[in-house]
Design a protein around this nucleic acid. Structure first.
Lengths: 142, 142
DNA sequence: TCCGCAATGACAGGTTCCTGACAAGGGGCC
DNA sequence: GGCCCCTTGTCAGGAACCTGTCATTGCGGA
């Protein structure tokens, strides 16, 4: 290896994501959410009435993983799953009023962390970073 | 929110890391390693004889988490933990010959994935990406 | 019509990560 | 020497993710 491991993009992406996740978990805990739960609530806000499988695709996890998270959200009464399937076996999931309120709180917290992460970076570089990461994501998603 | 969620750096970092992790896990499975195990072996190659707690810091996880991974690596005989503590309670961990060979295989696989992730990106942009991610990592690490 | 197929939901089992808590070793300070 | 504090290793328990497997449902082609 010609370059040091800590300079490689693969390592750095993992590093940043881990730090971001840890900071988020720490600041979300006081309001009673985990990073995974926040991701599901956010996806649900963009796609009201989506099925569990659709949410899993949006969050890039398996349906089985999403089920674990959804169980917690249901018992916390932040989401509600319809009793009847809309089509096939897919049952639409929706945010409750409590869920929407909690999501707004969480948005503020996560926005703050993102701002902290990008501190001292001008708008042009932020866009550049987003563009480069988008390319990486597309390259890895066949 | 003024911008779409899928354009935000925080979201993109998570997205890229998840795709990278999944691609790595998929291609590392045939050679019998997980992403977490690879990270520990790589850290160990850079710091031979490090203690469990030191490795945890290098991998940015808790020593409890690292213990779980180390258990698997020990039973696979890829690493060896000294019987006696060198100083205090810290017991040095070392790669076995099998571990070193396995790590080399894994390096090739992960390098390929990184190359795929950066496909079509000139060297200057790769450096830029690494620089921007370094800033993010430092901003999030107090 | 009927059979296969894709999608969905559910369950089992395993791994990796976390928090919280506890005991043991070493170093500095009284 | 004796005491405090930091580090390390360990155990317990829970959250989130995975693979593998199976039953149900709806749709489209033989």
């Amino acid at each position: 290896m010609s370059q040091e491991a800590t300079r490689r993009p693969g390592y750095l992406v993992k590093r940043v994501q881990q730090a971001f996740r840890q900071a988020s978990d720490e600041l979300l805990r006081p309001i009673g959410l985990s990073m995974a739960q926040y991701a599901v609530l956010a996806a649900l806000a963009e796609s009201p009435g989506a099925s569990s499988a659709e949410l899993a695709r949006q969050c890039f996890v398996t349906r089985q993983s999403l089920r674990d998270v959804l169980t917690g959200l249901k018992t916390a009464e932040l989401v509600a799953v319809a009793e009847e399937a809309s089509t096939g076996r897919a049952r639409p999931v929706r945010l409750t009023a409590t869920g929407e309120a909690r999501l707004k709180e969480a948005h503020r917290v996560v926005d703050d962390i993102e701002e902290r992460m990008l501190a001292g970076m001008p708008e042009s570089e932020r866009r550049r970073l987003a563009e480069l990461l988008s390319i990486c994501a597309e390259n890895l998603t066949p």
